[in-house]
Design a protein around this nucleic acid. Sequence first.
DNA 1: TTGTATGCGTTATCAC
DNA 2: GTGATAACGCATACAA
Lengths: 336, 336
Amino acid sequence: MTAQAREEARPATISRVAELAGVSRATVSRVMNGSSTVAPELSERVRAAAATLNYQPSVLARSLAVGRTSTIALVVPDLANPMFQDVLRSLSHAAATRGHRLLVADSEENVAEEGLIAVEARRRCDGLVLCAPRMPDEELAALAPQLAPFVLVNRDTAGLSVPSVNVDYAAGMRDLVSHLLGLGHRRFAYLAGPPTSSSNQLRLSTLRGFAAAGKLELAELDCGATFSDGHAVAGRLIDGVCTAVIAYNDLVAFGALSGLHELGVSVPHQISIAGFDDIPFARYTTPPLTTASVPPSEIGQEAWQRLWSLLGGEPAAPDIQFRPRLVVRGSTGPAA
Amino acid sequence: MTAQAREEARPATISRVAELAGVSRATVSRVMNGSSTVAPELSERVRAAAATLNYQPSVLARSLAVGRTSTIALVVPDLANPMFQDVLRSLSHAAATRGHRLLVADSEENVAEEGLIAVEARRRCDGLVLCAPRMPDEELAALAPQLAPFVLVNRDTAGLSVPSVNVDYAAGMRDLVSHLLGLGHRRFAYLAGPPTSSSNQLRLSTLRGFAAAGKLELAELDCGATFSDGHAVAGRLIDGVCTAVIAYNDLVAFGALSGLHELGVSVPHQISIAGFDDIPFARYTTPPLTTASVPPSEIGQEAWQRLWSLLGGEPAAPDIQFRPRLVVRGSTGPAA
DNA sequence: TTGTATGCGTTATCAC
DNA sequence: GTGATAACGCATACAA
């Protein structure tokens, strides 16, 4: 490669455009940003020069000068979860409407590194949407200054004055329980998610409330958050310990459903089973899954809306809590 | 807010650390990067100063100076497609192993803007993984210089010398057809994906080859790439035009399956149906879906591996083509 | 309206 | 080993 070729290979800079157009860099900058009033003649010269050099302003240098990257970060505990995928998609779309791009970081359920990942991701962007349901309150509070501006999704704010968009898991759980009680169920099993998950704690405490009130008997089974977790626990459901199963989420419910099917247990005739989230394919399982529907794409939109306010130096809209919608499908039926 | 408070609110810079530690910025930089040999005493002073000021180097400024962002972009046509979600996840994980972050851009099936989006996303990063199956060859060729270094996923390279990781759709389709022929099917319907999709063209031409050879009769039904596309077309399958249906992808197959179920058509007894991709829930539909399995997470890994080579100035590994694996499940059976 | 000069926060080159 | 100083590429007060 000749020296000249190498020179041409390197992206053109604003200086070279200015030189070619016979103007100052400032003028080029003004033209490129469409700002100020530049003489039509000069403007045209600049455009021509930019075109021949195939000039593209450096986003990096621009960001450094302006102090803004037009990029936000999303940190989630598990990209494999359809819930987060939908949040990702809707957040990406919403941010795009304001010319912002999305940087995605997956902590891979690694609670220990979650904080570092979040901080690191945040430092590359202007703001952050954080889904870290298992991060301890103290850690979150300690990290908050480094994460700001940011918005919390799917966890309580730990007393911080941080905008959040949440789901009213307690209400969703109450609806599911009421539905199952109405079908005559009294002996319940809960397939518990990650113990440190705040949403799991909310669901669990709601169930315990019912149990304490004598409305139902509750068996708590440690499980997890994935399909295989649910699948693995199916064997423990067939000893007649319960007639109704509520899973931590749809994924777990799916797994249990599949496992029970393999064990020859008929759902909902022998056991009713309900999930949580209403992920896209919940309606296409066999039988279709009764669940509490949370709207992930609205979550992304609301999160963006709040982060956008923060980026503009304005106060964010009030915290929002989505009330899950009970969706009754074929996986729940009258108690045996 | 007082002037002092505002000053403290602004992130500390390398200059302030240098000032506090009584050294030059260069020394601070050396300490922070663990490079060179710095006198232990100075090193300690710098660390202390950095700690008290809560100093975090600016990624932005660093990127500008080094000429590298340690970020790559992924452009996909549809984030809602589970296939791309898996590619996203695996690419993100693979890149993370080398300290790289992932910027994601969704063209939302908007072929017209896909080029602009790709270029814009690329300019924020060091490299790009491009899934743009519908982008015309000429446009891709024209954009290539601006996109480099980049890797193509899921489309032919249009004669460009660009690393690519692909799926051998023709082979997968041949396996599906052989399977169905073996079950006695002769009258086939193909639920066609987007006409401009290169993978759709590959699947279609393979099917036409069988038809031309007199091995089967082929009805081509314009459809699409989504669940609802498949659902909408179900009504056109019940006039006895075929005994076997091959869908553009699993999503479409799902939709058709669901639509046929609503129409009271029994699968696979009246009609056999097969998908393509083997997305996670393909095995949990009713009946479970026969499909050609492509490994999305390996796609992400292979794409990263090639991009990583390119970023290092080395030639990328040879193009790779994954051979889909035929997965026979309950949605296909003997011809009626 | 246009140009000059300076700042954005680093890293890297070169003297010392 | 350490410190000035010049890049990196752009935006923007300020002056003209």
